[in-house]
Design a binder for these strands. Structure first.
Length: 880
RNA sequence: GCGGAGUUAGCUCAGCGGUAGAGCAUCUCGUUUACACCGAGGGGGUCAGGGGUUCGAAUCCCUUACUCCGCACCA
């Protein structure tokens, strides 16, 4: 070896150096070659001005594992990184900044404001890259994209125009979710429901020309100012006679019609009478249209009451108005009762402000024609979603989808390419018109921008240089890398993003944008609580990287990622950092003995291998198969766990210890030693390659020193299982050796001997071959079980401890017979347990239904077990 | 209300038809020359309750209870 590893594992000493080495080597950048098998994946673009949290660390680690695995497996691999302009979120950040200066965006004006957001973006745009770099993300930074880039903006405009021309984008007056805080419309998926304790107010509405009064209930009394009707069920005997008459709206004393509406009113619920506020409630809006009730907007875009609410209320905050309305109703004796009431209040997810349903002119996407093929693509397996249970959620949502509100009254985003003229003509084109094409009047551009998710929906192809359906000008990247293969993202954006990419991809490229979706769970704290700043349980991934290195964090995330939520605590990460340390130290040990560079290493001659060497290669091979299999079905936990178990508990705990006698010259010939070194190199090399996707830094740092043919492990071939390495015989015999050693250690402790006390062990093979095996490998038992001598034949003396282990009879001869009450108790318990097991097996075998109906191999297994238990019992009884 | 997931060792979870597992925690022993971020070993579970299918159920079906997550939402 040219170089040795540092004595201590200190990730900070090499992680950043290694990343720079990869980037300089161009390993993240694939070639543009249609002939080569490719693998491509696009990053879920984080907010450009954001800071990565632990959820980002998870989703990007998982992507990187797949990406590195595919790259090493020979695919021409592209991981395309980038960021999202994140309309509302980013605009809010800059608005807050302005607020600190005591001004609002309206003070600076649209152009200046947008300029400022761009400045902010430029200042922060390298942060995301820096953070992903620290995690080891092997993304192709030469292809980094931003949703407001020229190319992406062009794609956005193309799609909008095309959808408009196809009649799938339309502008209409409708009731939408309005955020009074952000002063914009938002889509249905952006509304989150929070359970809140509220009150249910029961109010009297006197019936015109009668001494009766209807009692209606509402959680929002202030909206009554906008009531334009009262509805009852048309079949309701109690109220049928009043339909067509009018009620008097309290406070404002307006006459409002009483209508019959079977859809809005459930006669079984409450009083069976409903107040109708078409301008401020979705259901009432529909009912209003059905019954020709006028719309009266009493709450404005700013959440304050309008003039239409009456002079007293004009300009009053909607919450204050509620109190005042209740006060007035009480005074007039029209408030019947107030009940405590738990209900769900819709709030804007971004700012937590209660949503105000409001009638407003917005742009929409007619979604059903897009949803149908998107449902079909998942239904017929063109796209698979893992974990599969999410498919039900996907179908449920897609089948009940409503038109998508895409216009936002914001300034930061893709401005809608629609141009209005004073004569009411609207023009939607790829190129800005100078004048109205219909009447030549001057035009002004639509002020609204598009929902951020409109542009993210195009991400898999807009980022690759797509130019429009069937265009000749599509970039080579698009030709080579589209459609992408896998999408890895959080389940929380299944509707926001994944569903929309599927719809847009199918519509505009004719292909599903990816074939596999893996949805990862939410990272929670150790107690399963959501991480939040207020709870103070947030784990910052960069802090962790600084403390224990990226590899430990990555491995912890991988080993926890089964698709469900992940409980993550510092202690857990600490635990896996011990594993990284273990790899480091095992590698140090191996490299002290290895004296051949990997590139000069001769192929291993299997015929010369010892049993334990065939065993470790067989186990490594099984692990290789397992890792590849589990990664292909996104079981990151199973894949990483298989590696953990193999490397630590098979390679380190057993194989290295078993190889030491030979490596250190206590046993065997020079040829044996050379072969042991060769096997050590083989196992280390393959293990590092297998581990590389999970812990790229430490494996690269170590592998570099092995002198491989390839310049870096990042592009070394990923191991695949080879049948020739499988060796069940070696596994069976080595398992027996391990079990015998364990038993000796066990009995030694139970009998109160110290590790320094040495014994003679009798072990008998069941045939000459096996006896010979124990004779040849006696040194393993002697070294690892700390024995004096191993006898393969002859009768053990009386008073020895007898047992049957993995089918082999053993006897441990103590220097003196030590019998304490405690030991006898153990022996008794052992016998009792064995008797119980034997009784269970014999009962089973005595049952004719079992022996006749169970498959033969199970019955045979039970018979073998019976034989072994009988033999063991007999031996154990001799210990008494 | 509809849909989904879960309930297994003190904690976090795996196993999903053939003898209950892992990691962490805990206890005991050990200064073995790769590693004390270590090694060896022990203790600890009627697999939420009830029913069914089966020769056999933690595993499949039904049911009850509780927890979590979507979606919808009744004024």
């Amino acid at each position: 070896m040219k170089e040795e590893l540092a004595t201590r594992y200190e990730p900070s000493q090499f992680e950043q150096r290694i990343y720079a080495f990869w980037e300089a080597g161009g390993y993240f950048t694939p070639v543009v070659d249609k002939e080569r098998p490719k693998f491509s994946i696009v990053i879920p673009p984080p907010n450009v001005t954001g800071r990565l949290h632990i959820g980002h660390a998870l989703v990007n680690t998982l992507q990187d594992i797949i990406v590195r695995w595919k790259r090493m497996s020979g695919f021409n691999t592209l991981w395309l990184p980038g960021t999202d302009h994140a309309g509302i979120a980013t605009q809010m950040v800059v608005e807050k900044q302005l607020a600190r200066e005591g001004i609002s965006r309206f003070d600076v004006g649209r152009d200046k404001f947008v300029e400022r957001v761009w400045q902010w973006k430029e200042q922060h745009s390298t942060e995301i890259k820096d953070q992903l770099t620290r995690l080891g993300a092997s993304a192709d930074w030469t292809r980094e994209r931003f949703t407001l880039d020229e190319g992406l903006s062009r794609a956005v405009r193309y799609v909008f125009v095309k959808l408009y021309e196809d009649g799938l984008v339309y502008r209409d007056l409708a009731i939408v979710n309005w955020c009074p805080q952000c002063r914009t419309a938002i889509s249905d998926v952006e509304v989150e429901f929070r359970e809140k304790n509220g009150k249910l107010y029961h109010i009297k509405y006197p019936v015109e020309g009668s001494d009766r009064a209807f009692i209606v209930a509402t959680t929002r009394p202030e909206t009554m100012l906008g009531d334009t009707g009262v509805a009852v069920h048309p079949e309701d005997e109690r109220y049928r006679e009043f339909i067509g008459k009018a009620a008097t709206l309290p406070i404002v004393n307006r006459q409002i019609p009483i209508v019959g509406d079977a859809i809005l009113v459930d006669p079984e619920f409450g009083t069976g009478v409903v107040k109708v506020t078409p301008s401020h409630d979705k259901n009432d809006y529909e009912a209003g249209l059905r019954n020709n009730l006028p719309q009266l907007q009493v709450i404005g875009e700013d959440g304050r009451m309008t003039a239409a609410a009456g002079a007293e209320f004009d300009g009053m905050d909607r919450n204050d108005a509620r109190k005042r309305v209740v006060e007035l109703l009480e005074q007039q004796g029209l408030l019947v009762k107030v009940e405590e009431h738990v209900h769900n209040v819709g709030v804007h997810g971004k700012c937590d402000t209660a949503i105000e349903p409001m009638v407003s002119r917005q742009w929409f996407v007619k979604i059903e024609p897009l949803a149908k093929p998107a449902i079909e693509a998942v239904r017929n397996g063109t796209i698979t979603i893992t974990p599969q249970s999410w498919e039900a959620t996907y179908f449920n949502w897609m089948e009940n989808i409503h038109d998508w509100t895409i216009s936002r009254q914001l300034w930061w985003g893709h401005r809608i390419p629609a141009f209005h003229c004073p004569n009411g003509h609207t023009t939607v084109t790829m190129h800005d018109p100078a004048t109205c094409p219909q009447c030549s009047a001057p035009v002004t551009q639509e002020t609204d921008v598009l929902d951020t998710w409109f542009s993210s929906g195009l991400w898999p192809f807009s980022t690759l240089g797509w130019q429009g359906a069937g265009s000749e000008e599509d970039a080579p990247d698009y030709e080579v890398f589209y459609p992408t293969d896998t999408l890895i993202t959080g389940f929380d954006i299944l509707f926001f993003w994944v569903a929309r990419m599927i719809m847009m991809g199918l519509r505009f490229t004719g292909k599903a944008p990816f074939s596999q979706v893996f949805l990862n769970g939410l990272v929670r704290d150790e107690q399963g609580q959501k991480m939040s700043k207020t709870k103070g349980n947030v784990i910052d991934p960069l802090d962790v990287v600084n403390e224990v290195g990226a590899d430990a964090l990555r491995f912890t995330l991988a080993v926890s990622a089964s698709g469900r939520d992940i409980p993550l605590g510092k202690s857990r990460i600490q635990g896996y950092s011990a594993f990284v340390n273990k790899i480091w130290n095992a590698s140090r040990f191996a490299m002290m003995h290895i004296d051949t560079e990997l590139r000069d290493a001769k192929p291993i001659e299997r015929d010369n291998l010892k049993t334990v060497e065939r065993w470790i290669l067989s186990r490594l091979n099984a692990t290789t198969a397992e890792v590849n299999r589990q990664l292909s079905v996104f079981r990151f936990d199973e894949a990483s766990n298989a590696l953990y178990k193999f490397f630590w508990h098979e390679f380190c705990d057993w194989y290295i210890e078993m190889a030491k006698p030979v490596l250190l010259g206590r046993h065997g010939t020079d040829e044996d030693r050379a072969l042991a070194k060769r096997v050590l190199l083989e196992v280390l090399d393959r293990s590092l390659r297998l581990l590389h996707p999970f812990m790229p830094f430490v494996t690269e740092e170590i592998w570099q020193k092995l002198g491989g043919v390839e310049p870096a492990v990042i592009i070394a071939p990923y191991p695949i299982a080879e049948e020739v390495l499988e060796d069940t015989e070696a596994e069976r015999l080595t398992d027996a050796v391990k079990a015998v050693i364990t038993t000796v250690r066990n009995v030694r402790a139970e009998r109160g001997f110290t590790p320094k006390d040495r014994f003679t062990l009798y072990v008998r093979g069941n045939n000459a071959r096996e006896s010979n095996f124990f004779r040849e490998n006696a040194y393993l038992l002697i070294e690892l079980a700390r024995l004096d001598e191993v006898a393969v034949e002859g009768e053990p003396p009386a008073g020895a401890h007898h047992d049957v282990v993995e089918g082999f009879h053993i006897s441990i001869v103590f220097p003196e017979k030590v019998v304490s009450a405690e030991q006898l108790e153990r022996v008794r318990r052992d016998i009792e347990k064995t008797q119980k097991e034997l009784a269970a097996v014999e009962a089973k075998l005595a049952d004719e239904r079992f022996t006749s109906k169970a498959p033969p191999h199970i019955v045979d297994g039970a018979r073998a077990q019976q034989a072994e238990l009988r033999a063991r019992l007999e031996k154990l009884q001799q210990n008494q």
